[in-house]
């Protein structure tokens, strides 16, 4: 097939409804709101179901690590929480998480932030619509509810002890995304929040 306007035409492939319909090759990122910096996921979409996925990092050898030290690591977790809430379409708590993150980064003492932050996490945990949002949502084999729970736990741990939780790796991401719908995929990426900086951080 030719390429009108320099774009490849969609090709056919089997899909989950038993109709052989067009598949579209789309790159998610590196520029998307509430998306991990430098991450690119190349997906094959059919409708909005992801059939194939390949994740990679741009600028892998970038020098320097930003999210270093206990304070910044806690801020990093709040940043991840803000992105998760943003993707979930919950603007107010997302804005609150971002504000707490900025306070931490600006150097205000953690004990002034911790109380409000754990209040925010509790509120997210309690929210019925967040549970509806993630329970049994079609995401292939991935258990999204567990991932979201993990993310919320990570925020609490990072706030209370300053320890960095173990993050998912970019390489594992692709496997989680196959079979998910686009909306679910965005939530998965935000909940996994893969490591996008060099490995030094996780041990430091």
């Amino acid at each position: 097939m030719g390429m009108p306007g320099g774009l490849p035409m969609a090709d056919l492939g089997p899909d989950r409804d038993g109709l052989t319909l067009d598949r579209l090759h789309v790159a998610l990122g590196p520029v998307l709101p509430d998306w991990p910096a430098g991450l690119v996921v190349r997906v094959v979409l059919q409708g909005d179901v992801i059939q194939e996925a390949r994740a990679e990092l741009l600028d892998r050898d970038r020098a320097g690590v930003f999210w270093d030290g206990p304070q910044r690591r806690a801020a990093r977790e709040l940043d991840a929480l803000a992105r998760l809430l943003g993707v979930a379409g919950w603007a107010d708590p997302a804005a609150r998480a971002r504000r707490l993150r900025d306070e931490l980064l600006a150097g205000s003492p953690p004990e002034r932030v911790v109380g409000r932050a754990s209040g925010l996490v509790r509120r997210v945990r309690r929210s019925r619509t967040v549970r509806l949002l993630v329970r049994g949502i079609p995401a292939g084999e991935t258990n999204l509810a567990a991932l979201v729970e993990q993310r919320l736990d990570a925020v609490e741990v990072a706030l209370s002890s300053g320890a960095a939780p173990v993050r998912g790796q970019v390489a594992e991401l692709a496997g989680l995304l196959v079979g998910a719908e686009l909306a679910a995929a965005r939530l998965i990426v935000a909940a996994v929040d893969p490591e996008t900086e060099s490995a030094r951080v996780r041990h430091g």
Partner: peptide, 8 residues
């Protein structure tokens, strides 16, 4: 709108 996240 501000009270609830986007519904699936």
């Amino acid at each position: 709108r501000r009270k609830v996240p986007t519904l699936r």
